[in-house]
Simulated assay, not measured.
Amino acid sequence: MLAAGLWWAVLGAALNTASGILQSDATRFVRPGRPVVRQPRYLAGLTLDGLGWLCAVAALQHLPVVLVQSVLACGVVLTVYAARFRYAVVLRRRDHVAAVACTAGLALVASATGTDAPFAVSGWTVAALASAAVLLAAAVAGTWDAGRGWPLGVLTGLAFGGTALVVRADHVDDAGTLPFPLAVALVAAYGITGVAARTRALELTGVARLAAIVSVTQTMVPGAAGILALGDPVRPGWGWALAAGVLLAASGVLVLAGSPGLRPPPTALRGRRKPRPGGVRRPCRRDHRGPSVQA
């Protein structure tokens, strides 16, 4: 079960990496009247995001929330190295160290998670999940025109983490406390909120910073909620390893957020002839019909 869950989580991280590259490419072609949400690459990336989410759903059938979210967050390592080949960027030494830190953190998280079945979901947990979905939607609406990208990034991570909690809760709920139609409605609410918040955040902040904020937020908060509210198992005496692993992986993600591999690629206009200041073309000093003339 552990191997199958890890396979789905890693596949989800790979799909998210491809999505990130496509959406980063889409920012090169933004023009007045053609925002990022209308770019074909952005829409293709959004499709891959959906497939990656389905892989995460499959992984959550076997693994705790904190482990699945940690694997997905460390997908930023794949993104950095993919950008190295895609855009021929030169990575820093600290980027390689951060990649090792992410890998080591994941190993600690995987070692610390237990294999016991979680306990049933309580009615209070269901009420908390429903209330959080409403509060997150209201918070996104309230910060939509605030002009800052990082609060929307935090809300994006919380919303995407909320979908993971609902999926995990629906899987472990044998008592029927969380009916399937309610689970679908909550997943849709969290998902729509997350996509809307991320789309708006992309217009206000860089892709790298947004990826770091979302990755760390959707790992730490839902991971802790999965352990405390859903009873995701932790091996006895390994709580320190779990905390150290999450912090190590999150630190690596934050360092990689400043990597050249996550910076926006060159714009599509680069290499074209730039217009002169003022848009006025300098007159030609030689008339094609005769000798040189005075400008």
Rank of each mutant, 00 (worst) to 15 (best):
A175M: 11
T199A: 14
R38L: 15
A229D: 04
F85V: 14
G261E: 03
G162A: 06
G258T: 11
A268W: 13
R84G: 13
A225P: 02
T177N: 12
V207M: 15
T199Y: 04
V36S: 07
V184D: 09
P260E: 03
A98L: 10
C74A: 12
V57N: 05
R34P: 08
V30N: 08
V65H: 03
A243C: 06
I192Y: 12
A88I: 04
A101Q: 03
A175C: 08
A212C: 09
Y81F: 15
A257W: 01
S70L: 13
L269E: 15
R34W: 15
G194R: 00
A189T: 07
D173C: 02
A229H: 02
A250L: 03
T193N: 14
W238A: 10
V154G: 01
A133H: 01
F29D: 15
G33Q: 13
G161A: 02
A189R: 00
T115P: 05
V57A: 13
C284I: 09
A196Q: 06
D173H: 03
P179T: 10
C102K: 02
L202F: 12
G33N: 12
A295K: 08
I227W: 03
L106E: 07
G231S: 08
G239W: 01
P64L: 08
P291S: 12
F160N: 02
D25M: 02
L256V: 04
D232M: 02
A185I: 05
S122P: 04
G5L: 02
I213H: 02
A9R: 00
